[in-house]
Design a protein around this nucleic acid. Structure first.
Lengths: 111, 111
DNA sequence: TCTTCATTTAACAAAAACATGAAATAACAT
DNA sequence: ATGTTATTTCATGTTTTTGTTAAATGAAGA
């Protein structure tokens, strides 16, 4: 589906706040999620849909409520992407070290 | 500035591709960055501005070129946010363990 | 200075995102 | 069945994002 969709889901302040609250509070109903915000319930409902479609939260029906919960796999996707990026950082650090070693001193004045 | 700005910067497929290329290739000029894409240079220029304002890349002037590079601090922000989230996951796992322990059954495979 | 190459800013159009109130649906209780 | 509570879908308006082309700016060289 693409990691950019996950990033997009977390790019909105309202959605980010929802996710952070779900992380700290565990399961919450749509109504509980909407309560602290000044925006309408339809708007929150859409945000929840975006988060669900991105795989960041999951929804289940319990009695007359829809209960939401943060979803591990969504976070795992980000972890993986960042892990891959970290490798690149390490690689380029290695390249720099090699260059320094060959030149014999860390800050040579060239080009 | 808010982590959601960083997420927003990476939410666009073109910008994500730019960042990934900068990670693997090191420094690139605006022109080199624009080359593989089908969209106009002004459009790429704006994407680069968004990435720069989010702190994900940095720009410097070298001869007649603008050279871009991925920026460690931008990634560190995400690492920190994910690290914080990971703590919450661990905490809720602890809570679950405690509940199982009280029930006398450490790993019940019920649904 | 005049030209050229590299890139950004400006002006604008199309598409997407985000909000709202009203109506529809879902689950449950009476 | 009818009503009540919980939530989503619909129709719509506004703002933001993303793209385009044309013009402006920046740096370098003749």
């Amino acid at each position: 589906m693409g990691i950019h969709v996950v990033f997009g889901a977390l790019a909105d302040p309202t959605r980010l706040a929802i996710v952070e609250r779900l992380l700290s509070s565990g399961d919450l109903t749509a109504g509980e999620i909407a309560a602290p915000f000044d925006i309408s319930k339809p708007a929150i409902s859409r945000h929840l849909k975006v988060l669900e479609e991105a795989g960041v939260v999951e929804r289940r029906v319990e009695r007359q409520f829809r209960v939401f919960r943060a979803r591990r796999e969504g976070f795992a996707q980000m972890e993986d992407w960042l892990e891959k990026s970290r490798e690149f950082w390490n690689d380029s650090f290695d390249r720099l070290e090699k260059i320094f070693a060959e030149k014999g001193r860390p800050d040579a004045e060239d080009d």
